[in-house]
Structures are given as C-alpha cells and as structure tokens.
Design a protein around this nucleic acid. Structure first.
Lengths: 247, 247
DNA sequence: TTAGTTAGCGTATTTTTGACGTTAACTTTG
DNA sequence: CAAAGTTAACGTCAAAAATACGCTAACTAA
C-alpha cells in the first residue's frame, strides 16, 4: 500500500469542454496559449479553459467558477464526464515550461476532472474570455492543443452525443425561441449525421416539453416556421416518460 | 485564479465498486472497518476497497492494483465512472480518526476516482480479501458505510445498469459456461426488474457472440438447458453491429 | 404415474422506425 | 406578375422491433 503525504500528491484541476452552436456548427471554447519553443521562437497553440482547484473547493463548483469566469454565465448545464490521470499527461517540455511560468511552481503531476457544458453563445458576455483571447472553434477543425486536451475534447464529444440521445440537452445551446429546423440542424451537428426532417419532426414533437408558440418566423424566403420553446418544468414532471430517441 | 502548491493539494485515491453475482443476487465487495466511537466503544462498519495512489501511479492502474490485491484477479473489466470531490467528503469524526490511525498522516481532503468492475465470484481467490475481512454484500442490503461510499455504490450501480443495456458485460460475472436462464436472472438482478423468458431468449440469442455448447445441464428437475459461452473474439469483430438492447 | 419445473419453440398484436410523397406559404428573380 | 426556389408541416406505407402469451419437450421428485 502506498503512503500518502501532502508533499507527494498530484495537483488537481478542472478542465471544461464548453460546447456552443453557431453558424450551423458545433463549437468548443478554446484559449490561446503563447509560449517560447526550444528554438526560442514565440509560438501559439490552444488549451481548454480550466483551473487548479483550491484546497477547500468542491470540484463541481470549481468547474462552475471556471465556466462563469470564461463566459459570464451562471446556472449552466455542466456535467463531469471523466478524470484524466495519466502520470505522463504533462511530459511535453513546452507544457512543463508553460506551467512553471504561469504558476511559478514546479508541478510534478496534474490530475484533472473534465466537465462538459452547453451554452448559448449568443448570451455569452464577458471580459475574461476576451482578455484571455478565447475563441469558438469548430469541433471539426480543432488545432493543435496543449497537454492531452485533444483527448479530453474527444471524450467530451462522445459523451455529449450519448447524452443527447437520452436527455433533452440540445436546448441549452439554442436561444429561448427556436424552430424545429434549428433543433434538427443542432442535432445533426452534434451527432455528425443527417436526419430526415419529416421523421425528426415526428419524433421530437412527441415530447410534451416542446411548446409551440404563437409567433412565427418572418422575412424568410419560404413558409415561415412556428417557434417553439423548451419547457423545463414539464420536462421535470414527465422525466420518466421521456427516455430518449434512437436517431 | 487559485495558486496550486504541493502542500495544499488534496490526496487522491481510487475506490472500487466490485460487483459479483451469487445465489441470484447482485453483490458488492465490502471491507469491514473497525473503529472506536466517541463513547469509546469498539464498533464496525463497511467501506469500499480502495487505496491512495502514489505520485507516479496511473489512476487506472491503481484501480487494477486494488482489484487484484482484493480478489487476486487480473485483466478484469474495470470502468472509471466518476470522481467524488466534495471538500467535506471526510468530515465525520470517525472517518477522520480512522484515516489518521491507518495512514499516520493528517489528511485534509481526499478526492477519489471511482471505478466499477465485474467479476466472477467463483474465481476469486486471495488471502488479502480474507485478511481484510472482505465480504460480498447484496446490493439491496447495503449496511452503513464509511465516508460517502453509499453514494459511490449508488452511482456505480446506475452506471452498471446503463452499460448493461448497451454492452455485453454481464458475462464477466458468470462462469465460462452458463445457461440462458442464468443470464436472464443476472440481468434481472442488475436491472432490478423481471423479464419475460421467451422474449429475453429471443433478443439475447440474436447476438452472434453467444455460442451454444454441446453440453447440457445434468441433474436438474426439468428439461436440461444448453450451456452457452461468451465469445469475446466474435464480439470484438462485430462490435458495431451490436448496439444494445431495450429491455 | 403424476405433478412440478424450466427449456425452447412459436404466434399474434402493437409500436417504432425509416423511406418518401405532397401541399402550403413565403421570398427572390427574370 | 409569373415562375422558381425554399422550407414547413402534414401524411402514407412497409419493414422491423417490442410485447404479450400459448404450447410442447424433457427432466426430477414424490
């Protein structure tokens, strides 16, 4: 049995895979990272928004905090989906150097709890993200990332796809009012497939928590669609009935 | 942003929810814990098998190690399903005292990665488990547990139920040869429901990885059933076809 | 010999899925 | 202003899956 001691514990962090949706693409919020490589050249790559936790901070709250700092949003869908704890997660010299520079500490090892969250990009409003040059990147065009953050995003996306099939979470990424088509395009982007619009409509409209509004689209070059909204109250009430879709 | 330092990091552990199956019940391996309560009386409760990780130990490997120490078994189905990181996980005086006694260290906080694993109880064979007075407890009769281990088991069971519907993992808990009825009783125990034997048979036998053996039951007071075995090779080959059942 | 048990096959009904046809209602373009 | 292009929103049909349940076979125990 190994003997634990405070001076031999890995550091713990949280990393957030923050998904958003715009211009018909599923996007992830990434932060630019500047570093000097071995040849002394200033270089850039990206990392996930994340932070170390403090000694008395709850993991879930640390994730909420990170999320709020990055997006200015609170009370957001947030789900812990995995821990990444390989001892060599941080073995790249660039990563080690960067950690030393930004924290001022020699960190041997970091175990990170990974969360994913879904937000409506339109509502995002924060200085923090701008200051840290955060940007929304299409999940299909992920650039080179720090640490094992590419793995984390991949696992997060897999988990998001799974959850989408059993829980109505897509709404978190849409504005209050949306059309069935908006929803379908979102599902297609997340599941990375195409869906038949007639069948999609049939299935999704069985959900009692989708409420049709009186309002319709205007100014579109086709028959205007009804707007709908997601009724969280009805969903909570009928949770047991709604056990997902098999697209 | 909080500042990480090695002397302010929580300790990291792994805890294993080890499921097994015997006498038609789903069971969990629990370890007896002796402690002295506030009134000075020697008392007992149970905890999950788990251990602290050492500074260079991979989380998954730490879980495998714990599992092997407890059961003597290697190469076992093992799945990380959550991290438990509330700062007050260890706030009960009994738990704090016990930690101090067994480790000799003042541990402020422990973040634990939870794994579940499925084993065939019959093959278990180890001194370690006996020495640590481990026992198989019916999941429906869980006694008072240390720390937040009751939560961990509950989450583990939920995850097991989910996985069972999409992956052929029940076999891990059965002997090499088993009948369709054995399998059904196992499914019923895990999912906590009853299934129609005719429909269960129809569904499960669609799986190509279930191979009928020539051998039949003997000495049973009814028509003897064929034995089957799970063919892991066939399963791996057809993984994509078999996308689960909806019982 | 009979009663009790589970194995293992089958049938019939309903539900869900998936593919696709069609009209309605709007804008844009020639 | 007519025609073309687009998506909305409804519906049909056949295949597949889920569900409920009947029945005979093959064994043991009493």
């Amino acid at each position: 049995m190994s003997i634990p001691g405070r001076n031999i514990n890995p550091t713990i962090s949280v990393d957030c895979v923050i998904f958003g949706f715009s211009t018909n693409q599923l996007k992830v919020l990434l932060i630019e990272r500047s570093f000097t490589d071995r040849s002394g050249i200033e270089s850039k790559d990206y990392k996930l928004p994340g932070d170390f936790i403090s000694i008395n901070e709850d993991l879930d709250l640390a994730a909420s905090r990170t999320l709020e700092e990055m997006t200015g949003l609170r009370d957001i869908f947030l789900c812990q989906f995995a821990v990444f704890g390989k001892p060599d997660r941080i073995s790249n010299p660039v990563d080690m150097e960067w950690l030393l520079e930004t924290t001022g500490l020699e960190i041997q090892r970091v175990v990170t709890a990974a969360y994913y969250s879904l937000i409506n990009i339109g509502e995002t409003n924060t200085d923090f993200a701008i200051k840290n040059s955060a940007s929304w990147i299409d999940v299909k065009q992920i650039p080179k990332l720090a640490f094992d953050h590419a793995d984390i995003i991949e696992q997060g996306l897999i988990r998001l796809q799974l959850s989408l099939r059993s829980e109505p979470i897509g709404f978190e990424m849409l504005p209050e009012k949306f059309t069935i088509r908006d929803l379908q395009i979102l599902y297609e982007a997340i599941l990375d497939c195409t869906l038949d619009n007639r069948n999609f409509r049939k299935k999704i409209l069985k959900s009692s928590y989708l409420v049709q509004l009186d309002e319709k689209q205007t100014g579109v070059a086709h028959k205007p669609a009804h707007y709908y909204r997601f009724d969280r109250y009805i969903y909570e009430k009928h949770k047991k009935e709604s056990l997902g879709f098999n697209f």
